[in-house]
Amino acid sequence: MVVKIENLVKRYGDLVALDHFNLEIEEGEVFGLLGPNGSGKSTTINCLLALLEYDKGTIEVFGEEMTPTSYESKKNIGVIMQNVAVFDELTVYENIDYFCGLYIKDKNERKKLVEEAIEFVELQDYRKFRPKKLSGGLLRRLNIACGIAHKPKLIILDEPTVAVDPQSRNKILEGIQKLNQEGATVIYTSHYMEEVEQICTRIAIMDKGKNIALGTKDELKGMIDLGETISVEILELPEAVKEEIAHLPHVMNVTYENHLLKVRFSKGKHNLIRLLDVLKEKEIGFAGVHSELPTLNDVFLEITGKELRD
């Protein structure tokens, strides 16, 4: 077990940021903490890193209780904060070298690791640049390099892709998967469900400081009734036909807005065929037909009654 959190409670005055939160993360996982802003993701990470004192509960990392003086455990942890945390006064190389030097004392070993980190985030052409001269995406890559240069066994990434362009985002996500393939356990927090779905092997969905669902993405999607959502472009849909569709087997909900019919089905077979048969029978002309499987947003919606990005 790399991380074990039990009954964690953290209060800010009257606000309960973490409410008896539990979590276990195994070695080699890419673990996603998903939840809307204010759900308690960053508080969990800060407690896990012993940056915040908490009111109740226990946190163990690599089998040992995590405290501000757990320097042996900290040796094996790499942290990439939500905001870029580097020195503007130092160059790219100096920044990576400084933060790596907080873990690795041997100069030659450090030099090798810094070079590897620069190569990993593809900042070879920018090693003498100061952070102010880097674009947002490059800055994020520098931020990552500073967190992983010492080759940690556990890497914690707190929303590393906020305000990053799609190209840099893809590079960052690919990098995280590569780090995992090299043996690192990854904890990844985000409110972007697509990212979490893309890279995480297991996901915890958080809301109001609680762990409301936990599992692989398929397990999470399996927790809800929704099977698929079928959208059909129709110029005009009589109310009677809409009613008839609503009474088809497995239909959970029907909407027709802006010439788009949306039908949400619970799990079941032949939903699309049944729907198209009704339209054909009533001689309703239609254009594009799309079928979507449930997303983590659907899971969150069904559990909490609100959208992830509310």
């Binding site: 890193l49 320097y71 900290k74 040796k75 942890i77 904060m81 905001n83 945390a85 580097v86 907080l102």
Partner: peptide, 10 residues
């Protein structure tokens, strides 16, 4: 931010 990063170090 940099202080937090340093506090996370060994």
């Amino acid at each position: 931010l940099v202080r937090a990063r340093m506090e996370c170090s060994s």
